[in-house]
C-alpha cells in the first residue's frame, strides 16, 4: 500500500507540480511549434507519452544492470575475464550516449511499428515522430531516472521509473493541449503586432506556469489524506 501511495506521489509530482514543460522547461520546441491546433497537440502529446515510456523502460534497464556504479552486469563480466572481485567498475560516463541512442532507436521502432500495423494512426501523428528524437522531455526523463539510480539509498524500481515517465508524458500532453486551446482562441484576438507568434505564446505559458504553481504542496496533502484513510 505504501508503494501505491508513493507511486501516486511520483505521478502527481511529474504530471502537475513539476510539470515537464512549465516547471522544468523541457520540450519547449514542440510546445511552441505544434500548439496551434488542439488535435495536433493531442497527437503530439500521445506520441511523446508513448516514446517516453518506451525510452524510460529501456534506459532504466540499461542503467540498472549496466551503467550505475554498483551495476551487476559489468562486475560479472569483469569476474569472467579474470579481474579481481573487489574492483570498482563505473560505466556511468557512457550513460548520455546510451540514452540518446536508446531514444533514437525507440523513435525509429515506434515509427516502423505504426507504419506497418496502424497506418491511419501513423498518418495522424507519424509526422511528429522524427521531431521527438530531439525533444528534451524524453532525455530529461531518462536523466531523472539515472539520478535516482545513482543514489543507492533510494534506488528506484522499474515501476517507479515507468510511473515518472508516463505521468511526465501526460503532463506534457496536458500542457500542450491547454496551450493549443488558448492559441486557437487567440486567433480571434487583436494581439499587438510585435507579440504575434512566439511572443504572446510565451507570455501565455508564463501565466500557465503561475497557475500550475498552485499545485505545489498538493502531493503532500494527497499523501496525508490517503495514509489517514488507510490507518
Amino acid at each position: 500500500m505504501e508503494t501505491i501511495i508513493n507511486l501516486i506521489q511520483i505521478a502527481l509530482l511529474a504530471a502537475l507540480i513539476n510539470n515537464f514543460v512549465l516547471h522544468y522547461f523541457v520540450g519547449i520546441c514542440p510546445f511552441l511549434g505544434v500548439s496551434r491546433r488542439v488535435d495536433m497537440a493531442v497527437g503530439m502529446g500521445c506520441a511523446v507519452t508513448f516514446v517516453i515510456s518506451l525510452a524510460a523502460f529501456l534506459s532504466w534497464t540499461f542503467t540498472y544492470y549496466l551503467l550505475r556504479p554498483e551495476a551487476p552486469l559489468p562486475a560479472w563480466i569483469w569476474k569472467l575475464v579474470g579481474g579481481s572481485a573487489d574492483a570498482k567498475i563505473d560505466l556511468s560516463v557512457l550513460s548520455y550516449i546510451m540514452y540518446i541512442f536508446v531514444i533514437a532507436s525507440s523513435v525509429q521502432f515506434v515509427e516502423m511499428y505504426l507504419r506497418k500495423f496502424f497506418p491511419s494512426l501513423y498518418k495522424s501523428f507519424g509526422v511528429f515522430l522524427p521531431l521527438i528524437t530531439t525533444n528534451c522531455a524524453i532525455l530529461f526523463a531518462c536523466l531523472e531516472i539515472m539520478k535516482q539510480l545513482q543514489n543507492p539509498n533510494e534506488l528506484w524500481g522499474l515501476h517507479e521509473a515507468l510511473t515518472l515517465a508516463v505521468a511526465g508524458g501526460i503532463g506534457f500532453t496536458i500542457a500542450i493541449t491547454l496551450m493549443a486551446g488558448l492559441r486557437e482562441e487567440l486567433d480571434l484576438c487583436d494581439v499587438p503586432k510585435p507579440f504575434q507568434g512566439p511572443g504572446i505564446a510565451l507570455v501565455i505559458a508564463g501565466i500557465m506556469a503561475m497557475a500550475f504553481m498552485g499545485f505545489t504542496g498538493m502531493d503532500q496533502g494527497v499523501k496525508n489524506a490517503l495514509s489517514s484513510l488507510l490507518h
Binding site: 506521489q9 507540480i17 513539476n18 539509498n153 533510494e154 505545489t216 504542496g217 502531493d219 503532500q220
Partner: peptide
C-alpha cells in the same frame, strides 16, 4: 537525511 519538502 532526505525528505519531501514543499516543492522538491
Amino acid at each position: 537525511g532526505s525528505g519531501q519538502g514543499f516543492a522538491d
